[in-house]
Simulated scan of single mutants.
Amino acid sequence: MDRYTTLVIRMPEDEASLKKVKLLTDALMPFATGISTEDEMTILEKIEGHDNFDPNIAKDARKQTLALHKQLENNKQDNKPRT
């Protein structure tokens, strides 16, 4: 069975580091099964970095996400077989 790893790279600003990243990503290309620069993480990063973005929106979203994770974890516990 094949094993997959997802790798997210924050692109550096300076030219020397960009060259290193390009060399490494070029070396990985024979093994790549998919590439995306228009994914949810990238889009969210651009939204949160916008000058008009209210940081309270991100705080609220993270709070809701934590609550969702807790709810899912509780559901897992409720669905465990009882012995």
Rank of each mutant, 00 (worst) to 15 (best):
His69Asn: 01
Asn56Ala: 06
Asn74Cys: 04
Gln77Glu: 14
Ile47Leu: 15
Arg82Cys: 10
Thr37Glu: 03
Glu15Ser: 06
Glu73Arg: 04
Met11Cys: 14
Thr6Lys: 11
Gln77Lys: 11
Asp39Thr: 09
Ile57His: 09
Arg10Asp: 08
Ile47Thr: 09
Ile47Glu: 13
Asp2Val: 14
Arg82Lys: 14
Lys76Cys: 11
Glu73His: 07
Pro12Tyr: 00
Leu72Trp: 02
Val8His: 01
Asn52Glu: 08
Arg3Val: 14
Ile35Ala: 05
Glu48Asp: 04
Ala61Trp: 13
Leu44Ser: 08
Met1Cys: 05
Thr5Ile: 15
Leu7Val: 15
Lys70Pro: 02
Tyr4Cys: 03
Thr25Met: 09
Arg10Ile: 12
Ala27Glu: 10
Lys19Ile: 09
Ile57Trp: 15
Lys63Pro: 00
Asp54Gly: 07
Arg82Asn: 14
Gln77Met: 14
Thr25Phe: 08
Gln64Lys: 13
Ala16Gly: 07
Thr65Val: 00
Ala58Cys: 04
Val8Trp: 03
Pro30Trp: 03
Phe31Val: 06
Thr5Leu: 12
Ser36Pro: 01
Glu45Asp: 12
Met41His: 10
Asp39Glu: 13
Asn75Met: 15
Ile35Pro: 00
Leu23His: 11
Ala61Phe: 14
Lys70Cys: 01
Thr42Lys: 07
Glu38Thr: 15
Leu28Thr: 03
Leu23Tyr: 09
Val21Ser: 02
His50Ile: 00
Thr37Gly: 05
Lys76Trp: 03
Ala27Lys: 09
Pro55Ile: 10
His69Met: 05
Glu15Gly: 03
Val21Pro: 05
Asp2Glu: 05
Glu48Ala: 13
Ser17Lys: 13
Asn52Phe: 12
Thr25Pro: 02
Arg3Glu: 06
Arg10Glu: 10
